[in-house]
Write a protein that binds this DNA or RNA. Sequence first.
DNA 1: TTTTATCGTTTACAGATGTAATCGAATCGA
DNA 2: TCGATTCGATTACATCTGTAAACGATAAAA
Lengths: 123, 123
Amino acid sequence: MEKRLSDAEWDVMEVLWSSDQPLTATDIAERIPAERDWSLATVKSLLTRLLAKRAVSPAKDGRRFLYSPAIARDPYVADESRRFVDRLFGGKLSPLFAQLAEGETIDKDDLAAIEALLKELRQ
Amino acid sequence: MEKRLSDAEWDVMEVLWSSDQPLTATDIAERIPAERDWSLATVKSLLTRLLAKRAVSPAKDGRRFLYSPAIARDPYVADESRRFVDRLFGGKLSPLFAQLAEGETIDKDDLAAIEALLKELRQ
DNA sequence: TTTTATCGTTTACAGATGTAATCGAATCGA
DNA sequence: TCGATTCGATTACATCTGTAAACGATAAAA
């Protein structure tokens, strides 16, 4: 992926990543979380920008296009996470962990999952 | 804090948070990481924006100002972390953890610190 | 076949952001 | 005292972002 995605673009990518692709612009618009309350035109603009960033691929289907993600979610997310942790926590996870733990915002399952991961790492 | 900070503004805040305040604009400019390579004018612009966002407080010192942070780092960071984890990982820390663990980007100390935190949480 | 709906494309436009230059007032140095 | 330096404030300007409207081609409906 060559460019970073804006928040709005990210929402479009989330729709693509979490659906069976490819999708038409209209399909995508329908699946955008309702809170966003975007017009179809807005989704089309975002798709144009995502095409420019080569984050989605178009496939011609008659007079229109079908869109699929051209970048995978995981590597992108890994990249953003690294950037975030570097910037706010000097690359260390523990302060982030401490930060979020304070607000009791880590639920039981999440905690258990982390412990499991830790156990793996320890060996 | 009323507004989010841009990347450039964040760098200015980092200087303030990590120094003995208050500082003059020139002091701040001198302490900005060299990679940024900003002119003094740029730092002044950023300070103006930070004043507008009420993220720094000015204290008059003769003809000039001394600046101090008006928001604390921790709560701001907590807020951003929450936003980040919500957006990319559905609010769960474990996937972030897994993501970063994969790139072997968690060093020994960091790991130990996390384990200590976990131990605390477990009780 | 004529109207209408649907595509992608182009254009729009305000606010945020990065990155300054300029300007007028004040002060410092000579 | 007078020019140089230093402040903050104002203005600049390109790019990115959010959020569309308008437009022209095509296809579907009547």
